[in-house]
Structure formats: structure tokens, C-alpha cells
Simulated assay, not measured.
Amino acid sequence: MDPARLVVAELAANAALHGRVPGRSFRLTLSVTASGALRVEVADTRGDHLPTRARATAEVPTESGYGLLLVEELADRWGVRCGPVPCKTVWAELDLVHRR
């Protein structure tokens, strides 16, 4: 599957699962940066609940918690931007030039 689709799916799933506030949804934005990267942004209203990186060396594998490891492997850059309160935006960029 296309890496961009996996990144979009993972960030959207995380927002729906962990960033959901009853009565509110999340916003998905896709854009191309001036440097030629696909930028995926998912904003939700749980600014108090920031994503954490899963431990790749966990002794006991779990069924969940590895999504951001997948994003980290597939994206060229990713991070979290806080605000405006109560929101946060998790973003990832995939360089399109190197993926052809």
C-alpha cells in the first residue's frame, strides 16, 4: 500500500480513537509544501492528550500502540503542534521527490 495512505489512515485512526471528544470530530488536511512534500495534518480537540512514541523494544508485544512507529518509519518528518486551546495537530511530511 502507498505510504501516504498508511500515514493518513494511522493519524486519522489515532484522532478518532484517542482524540475524540463527544460532539466534536477531527480535521484532516492534506497539502503540498513549497519544498515538494505531502503534508498530512490531523487536528483534534484533545490538546491535553499528546501522542507518545511506542517503545520498539517492548518485551511483551501488545495489539496496539505501534501506529506512531509506523508513521515514524514511513514519514520523512512528523511531530505535534499544540493549540489553539483545546486543540492539537499531529502532522507528518512525506517527500514526494524521493518516492517516485
Rank of each mutant, 00 (worst) to 15 (best):
M1N: 06
M1T: 03
D2S: 12
D2Q: 00
D2L: 12
D2H: 03
A4F: 11
A4V: 11
A4W: 15
R5Q: 14
R5N: 12
L6Y: 14
V8D: 00
V8E: 11
V8W: 15
A9D: 14
E10F: 03
L11H: 01
L11C: 01
A12I: 07
A12S: 14
A13V: 04
A13F: 13
N14E: 10
A15H: 00
A15C: 06
A16F: 01
A16P: 11
L17G: 06
G19H: 01
G19N: 05
R20P: 02
R20M: 15
V21N: 04
P22N: 05
P22I: 07
G23K: 05
R24L: 00
S25Q: 00
F26D: 10
L28W: 08
T29H: 14
L30Y: 15
S31V: 06
T33R: 09
T33N: 03
A34R: 13
A34Q: 12
S35D: 12
G36E: 02
G36Y: 01
A37S: 10
V40K: 09
E41H: 10
V42W: 08
A43D: 01
D44K: 01
D44Q: 02
D44F: 04
D44E: 04
R46N: 14
R46W: 01
G47C: 05
G47N: 04
D48V: 06
H49G: 05
L50D: 08
P51V: 04
P51Y: 00
T52R: 11
T52A: 09
A54G: 14
A54M: 10
A54L: 07
A54I: 08
R55P: 08
A56W: 04
A56N: 14
A58T: 13
A58K: 04
E59I: 13
V60W: 04
V60I: 14
V60P: 10
V60L: 14
P61Q: 13
P61Y: 05
P61R: 03
T62G: 07
T62S: 02
E63T: 09
G67R: 14
L68C: 09
L68P: 05
L68R: 01
L69D: 09
L69A: 08
L70G: 00
L70M: 07
E72I: 08
E72N: 11
E73D: 13
E73N: 07
L74F: 09
L74W: 11
L74S: 04
L74E: 00
L74Q: 01
A75C: 02
A75Y: 10
A75F: 07
D76T: 11
R77L: 10
R77V: 15
W78C: 12
W78A: 12
G79P: 11
R81F: 07
R81V: 14
R81L: 15
R81G: 00
C82Y: 00
G83S: 12
V85L: 12
V85D: 09
P86W: 03
C87W: 06
C87P: 00
K88F: 05
K88Q: 11
T89H: 02
V90A: 10
W91F: 10
W91Y: 11
A92I: 03
L94W: 04
L94S: 01
D95F: 13
L96A: 06
L96G: 07
V97W: 02
H98N: 10
H98T: 15
R99H: 13
R100Y: 08
